[in-house]
Amino acid sequence: MISMKNEAIIASWNKIGPSALAQERMFSAIMARNRSLHENKDKDRYISKAKKALIPAAACFALLIAVTAILGSGRLDLRRGTGLRDAGHEGDIDGTLPGDLPEGMDPIVASLAVFPEGESLADVSDAVLIGLSEEEAYRVEQLGRRLPSVIPDGYRFRHAGLYKTTMKNGAVYYLLSASYSFGDTAFDDSQEDVPDTLDFSVSVLSFKPETKAETYSFDELPDDLSGKGFLYVVYGDTYVGVDVGDLTHEEIMSVLNSVN
């Protein structure tokens, strides 16, 4: 094939470009990210040294937690659901909306809204989703520390989002969601083929959701969670929703055990 430029295309595309202010804004964000990565690298090195000393104690603690969970649990039938729908979310995960919306309600706002049990979609003023990197997700105030620190072998972070809903009375609710995929190509966006299916996801809420999904305290988990779809585990006043996907029970427990 002959290499061939096109003058019309070149002239046309040359008119497209970021303004000086936009360039400055992007540059600042990019440099901030680079500096942040350098700082985290330093922190990681420090933590790695500390972790080596704590491995034996951590292993004993994890074993204790696992035994407690298994002994204190009973087998329960879980219903499949989605984190968003079960967090007071009227829309389905694919954006379709059941039934009629409240008058004047933007369907997109409705599809993104998350709110506690007892609140109503009609009282939602606005809802947005903010895309987050892995570093940003784990740093979200109050919620980020509840994301799992252990991911099963072969799985990698894929993407995360912070759902922010503002009610008409001024109350604001957040849901942090992170998804993880199996294999490298699933999360490496520099590759062409990114599968549409997610392998498992974790949602963190600081409020009690209106939900049909089964909800457990950490000490009362069933003895087999594999294939159970979506469930909530309560850690103090935080609800952690897990769509377990294809994870085995042991993998699910490793994820749940690593939630702070």
Partner: peptide, 15 residues
């Protein structure tokens, strides 16, 4: 701020 609308001609519209 600073996001001036770019000049989009017919060629770029087509692209």
């Amino acid at each position: 701020p600073g996001s001036d609308e770019p000049e989009i001609d017919d060629v770029f519209q087509a692209v």
